[in-house]
Amino acid sequence: MATPDEPLTLPCGRVISRATANAAADWLTLLMSGEATEEQQRRWDQWRKAHVDHEAAWLHIESVTGRMKSLGSSPAYTALSSCRATGQPASATRRRVMRMLVWGGVATSAGLLASRTTPWQASMANCRSATGEQRNFALEDGTQLTLNTGSAVNLRFDARERRILLLEGEIMVATRHGSGIPTDPRPLLVETADGSIRSLGTRFTVRQRPESTSVAVLDSAVEISPRDAPGRTLVLHAGEQTQFRREAIETPGLTDEQSVAWTQGQILADELRLGDFLAELDRYRPGFIRVDPRVAHLRLSGVFPLADTDRILTTLPSVLPVRVQWRTRYWVTVVPADRGR
């Protein structure tokens, strides 16, 4: 285990002092507490600009908090969420916990951050996307792989099979089947924490959730096999979607446009609860979005381009009786429009 004064090496290779690392974590604690004044926010901004190591430390924290989002119910994400929701002053105990959360994987191991996979495992993956980023990859067999925000996969291609390991996030897979080009005879599988999805010459999306895997088929079909239910499989056809866990597969339903809108760079809302809408938008932004329970039930409809999430937030008051509070760009709260300023 690293000593209290031992420097830390960031994933980018930059070495920073322990004091700089702790200062970054302390700023995070203060900003998430909801108690930061405008003067403190100004000092935080000055601290970031004061030295390149400060900015590197803060960018690391943004990366960690963004990856924690995909872990959903993990202890690390729960701790962060509780910290920002309490509205209590940033205590010394909370600062120590925050330091452990955001630097534990660099200083010692990823055990504290572990859920179904660790952020550190994802950071070393063959193909990755950052929070708010979508990336396209052309695989060696001609398969097109698209990663949604905060996603990571490893590739395991050998003489017998082609296997895509989804570590976290969401992907779209499009094979060359039907293109007129000879297809690869090796089976193509996507593996998640809950089991595997075998392509039957198709285009489909897969999302790793905290407790299950979601699959939607756009063309042709896939075969789903839960990890802990030998012999139990389901063929999912074009226009269908489902979720499955290690031991069971839910009854398929029709693919809804909301679940695949991300492949067009959009969030589609059709009478969607504001709380659910902001939870989805939160996936595409560094930092966190909070919603006051008094307005979480409000519903909205529309097509929202993901290229500018700030703009989406700033337009909310024009369609709903809400106000957007910007503590920083990374900590945003949506409150009732009549709440005292």
Rank of each mutant, 00 (worst) to 15 (best):
V334A: 02
T175S: 13
N126I: 11
S17H: 03
I197R: 06
L59T: 14
S151W: 07
V102N: 07
S33E: 14
G87R: 09
A248H: 13
D292Y: 04
L112N: 14
V190A: 08
I224W: 05
L272S: 03
E211G: 02
Q41P: 03
E223K: 09
D219G: 01
R232E: 09
T314I: 08
Q258G: 01
R94K: 15
S63W: 10
I289E: 06
D45T: 11
T233L: 12
D228H: 15
L234R: 08
A307F: 12
G231C: 00
D282M: 07
L200G: 12
T146R: 14
R14L: 06
A92L: 06
G178R: 02
L234C: 12
L10A: 04
R323G: 03
R294V: 06
W103K: 06
R327F: 11
W331M: 15
V291E: 01
E240M: 09
E35C: 12
A114C: 09
T202N: 05
S196D: 12
E35R: 15
G87E: 11
E38W: 12
D45S: 02
I16H: 04
G150M: 09
Q208G: 03
S225C: 15
A107I: 05
V235Q: 13
L236D: 08
L28S: 03
A238N: 07
A79V: 13
T328V: 14
R84F: 10
R294G: 01
S63Q: 13
V173G: 06
E55P: 08
S33I: 14
A23D: 09
A57R: 01
P336N: 03
A216I: 04
R84Y: 11
T202P: 00
S91K: 09
L101S: 12
G287H: 13
T146F: 05
E247L: 12
R67A: 10
V173N: 04
P187Y: 11
V102D: 02
L313R: 05
T3F: 03
A261K: 03
P210R: 02
G239N: 04
G111M: 09
I61S: 05
G265Q: 15
M100P: 00
T205V: 14
L30M: 04
W27P: 08
R135F: 03
A56T: 10
T255W: 01
G178S: 05
V215G: 04
A130Y: 02
D276Q: 01
R176W: 05
A57S: 14
T86G: 11
G239Y: 04
W262V: 08
P226M: 02
S82Q: 10
G178E: 05
S199Q: 06
V64H: 01
T20S: 08
P305L: 15
P252K: 09
V322R: 00
H297Q: 04
D194Q: 10
D158L: 15
D219N: 08
L188D: 04
P119F: 11
N136T: 10
N148P: 07
R160F: 15
D310V: 05
T20G: 12
S33V: 14
A269Y: 05
N148E: 10
A107F: 03
C12D: 13
E170Q: 06
A159T: 15
T20R: 07
A57M: 06
L139Y: 09
R96L: 01
S74N: 09
R311E: 09
A79K: 13
A296Y: 02
E39R: 09
G253K: 14
R42T: 14
L236E: 04
Q40R: 02
S318K: 15
L31R: 10
T149D: 04
E223M: 08
T118Y: 11
A279W: 00
D53G: 12
L10P: 02
W326D: 05
